[in-house]
Design a protein around this nucleic acid. Structure first.
Length: 271
DNA sequence: CAAAGAACCTGGCGGC
DNA sequence: TGCCGCCAGGTTCTTT
């Protein structure tokens, strides 16, 4: 489910709604999703919500940090104490706060929440490659990273140790935007192509954030209030197999790369 | 050591 | 209708 734009959207909403509140209780209905002890967080106040790559960090005033990875189908829903009933699946975990409940639900149960100290959280963050909106996401950095691998560029884009936050949707969309074939070996990109790709990634991710992320056809991703994202309306290749390329009219093709569905225009994105 | 493949789960969909 | 295999916004462990 969530890649950088979806996680960033949720992070911003969390920062707005739960920041400043105190954790009153936690109910864990699916123990394997939670690493830590309730006693580490009960009574603590959330002072800041942060995102790095696809991970959300809740910084608490007791020097502990709750790290959350939504993986494919993890979802947060905020339930203020006094509002209308909103239909929802039975949550797998509920964090009771001062002004309401933060429900976590994860159909496939790949996601997790874990309590760590600040040092550990720092170490975990350092394992990720540059954030696409940071200055360390430079042409020089990308030239260096790409030059070290013959693997398809799409695989490198999705490698979180090399670049943070890009998953299957935005790898496909960014490569289309840059007119690059997803199978092209990373080290074969020239400087001009790398420049275009860098620009494409930033453009696509920014745009997706503006539309509050993508709720693709299986509709797993939701915003904190349960609403869909809207960027799926702007997909140019993802899940458009057999449809016409908006640019040239050729039919969008689907192949597999590293067992992930890969969509591209065979005319605009020649090898 | 790099790269491919399996594993972790549940549910929806198309094909027979 | 029913069963089967395939597919899904991700990582991580195991095998080649």
């Amino acid at each position: 489910m969530p890649e950088l734009p979806e996680v960033e959207t949720i992070k911003r909403e969390l920062e707005r709604t739960v920041s400043g509140q105190t954790i009153k209780a936690i109910k864990i209905y699916k123990p394997k999703l939670f690493f830590g002890k309730p006693s580490q967080i009960i009574g603590a106040k959330i002072v800041k919500v942060f995102r790095r790559a696809k991970v959300i960090f809740f910084y608490l005033d007791n020097q502990q940090v709750i790290m959350v990875h939504l993986k494919m189908t993890g979802r947060f829903l905020w339930r203020p104490e006094k509002t209308d009933w909103v239909k929802q699946e039975k949550p797998h975990l509920v964090i009771s706060l001062t002004k309401g409940k933060l429900n976590y639900y994860d159909l496939r149960q790949f996601g997790w929440l874990k309590v760590v100290d600040q040092k550990t959280s720092q170490i975990e963050q350092e394992k990720f490659g540059p954030e696409p909106f940071s200055s360390s996401f430079s042409l020089k950095y990308l030239q260096n990273v790409f030059s070290r691998s013959r693997r398809p560029i799409k695989i490198i884009l999705m490698d979180q140790s090399k670049i943070s936050g890009i998953g299957n949707i935005y790898a496909n969309e960014s490569l289309f935007e840059a007119k690059l074939n997803p199978l092209k070996p990373a080290k074969e990109l020239n400087n001009q192509e790398i420049k275009l790709l860098k620009k494409a990634i930033i453009k696509v991710l920014k745009s997706a954030i503006r539309y509050q992320g993508s709720t693709a056809s299986d509709k797993h991703y939701r915003q904190l209030n349960g609403n869909f994202g809207q960027y799926q309306r702007h997909f140019k290749v993802y899940q458009r197999e057999g449809e016409k390329c908006y640019h040239c009219g050729h039919l969008i093709k689907k192949i597999k790369i590293a067992n992930r569905g890969t969509f591209f225009c065979p005319f605009c994105q020649k090898l």
